[in-house]
Amino acid sequence: MTDLSALTRICPAPLPAMHIAWEHVESALGMALPADYKQLAEHYGPGAFNSYIHIYHPHGPTEFVNLTGPMPARIRAYLRKDFDQGTHPVPYDPERLFTIGGTDNGEHIFWITDPVDEPDRWRIAVNEARGPQWFTFDGTLVDFLTSVLSGQTQVPQFPRDLLASGPSFTPSRPDLWKPEPIPDQPPVDTAAIRAWGRANGYNIPPRGRIPSEVREAWERHNS
Rank of each mutant, 00 (worst) to 15 (best):
S168Y: 00
E180C: 07
G151V: 05
A6M: 14
H59L: 12
P58W: 03
G201E: 04
G151I: 03
L97R: 02
M1F: 14
I53Q: 11
P159N: 03
L162I: 11
I75D: 11
I20G: 09
T153V: 15
R160W: 08
I204S: 04
P183C: 03
V148E: 07
V142H: 04
T2W: 08
P119V: 14
P206H: 07
I124V: 15
I182W: 05
L149I: 12
E180T: 11
Q152N: 09
A41F: 10
I193Q: 04
I53E: 06
A195Y: 08
A125V: 07
L162T: 09
Q85G: 04
L4I: 12
V126C: 03
L141K: 01
T87G: 03
I53C: 01
D93V: 03
V65P: 02
Q39V: 05
G166N: 06
D189H: 10
M18Q: 14
P205H: 05
T190Y: 15
Q39T: 03
P205N: 13
P206W: 11
K38C: 03
P70T: 08
F135S: 10
H57P: 01
D161T: 13
L79F: 01
P119W: 04
M18H: 10
D189R: 00
P187R: 00
A13T: 12
G201C: 02
L163C: 01
H24V: 03
A164L: 11
L33A: 04
K178V: 15
R194G: 00
M31Q: 11
Y52V: 10
M1V: 12
T68V: 15
I210F: 11
D114C: 02
S165W: 09
H59F: 09
P115T: 13
N127K: 02
F158S: 04
H88A: 06
L149N: 10
N200Q: 06
S5L: 11
P167Y: 01
N127Y: 05
T153C: 13
A195F: 08
R215C: 13
S147K: 02
G69V: 10
H88V: 06
S168I: 04
R123N: 14
I10N: 07
P171Q: 07
A48V: 10
